[in-house]
């Protein structure tokens, strides 16, 4: 926990930056891909989206957005666990949350390297 406490300023900074990214982009992306794309109302063409996502701008953008999203959510989850579970849940909640963030970050990097 000492290391986590030492990293608190960095974690809160990522939480804040990730929060603004999410507020700006996530509703539109979920509406466009998850709902309108899933229902077939929005033409999500492979060639165009692949070119967009794998471009010199698209890859770093996706990396920043997804990694920011995961760390923001995991930091918030840590505090939800702390709020609901009390002091006893502090250390396990922190380890679980940040382990989840590290796994999600590694998965994101792997996916983007292959893209």
């Amino acid at each position: 926990m000492k290391l986590i406490h030492r990293l608190e300023p960095l974690l809160w900074m990522i939480f804040g930056a990730g929060g603004y990214q999410l507020a700006l982009l996530l509703p539109g992306l979920v509406l466009g891909v998850g709902l309108l794309g899933g229902l077939g109302f929005l033409p999500l063409e492979y060639e165009r989206l692949h070119a967009l996502a794998s471009s010199a701008v698209g890859k770093p953008f996706l990396a920043g957005f997804l990694i920011g999203l995961f760390w923001h959510c995991c930091h918030h989850l840590r505090h939800l666990i702390l709020d609901l579970g009390g002091e006893r849940a502090a250390a396990p909640g922190a380890y679980f949350s940040y382990a989840l963030a590290i796994v999600a970050t590694a998965a994101t990097v792997q996916v983007l390297v292959v893209l």
């Binding site: 999410l22 996530l26 992306l29 979920v30 891909v33 998850g34 492979y46 989206l49 692949h50 996502a53 794998s54 996706l62 997804l66 999203l69 995961f70 923001h72 959510c73 995991c74 918030h76 989850l77 505090h79 939800l80 709020d83 609901l84 989840l100 999600a104 998965a107 994101t108 996916v111 983007l112 292959v114 893209l115």
Partner: peptide, 26 residues
Amino acid sequence: YVLFALTSVFMFVGGVGLLLGVRALG
């Protein structure tokens, strides 16, 4: 306050869904 914190769980799931989409693109 708790509902706001709970958004993190659903948004994390949304992020995983988008990541699966990027993987499918690749």
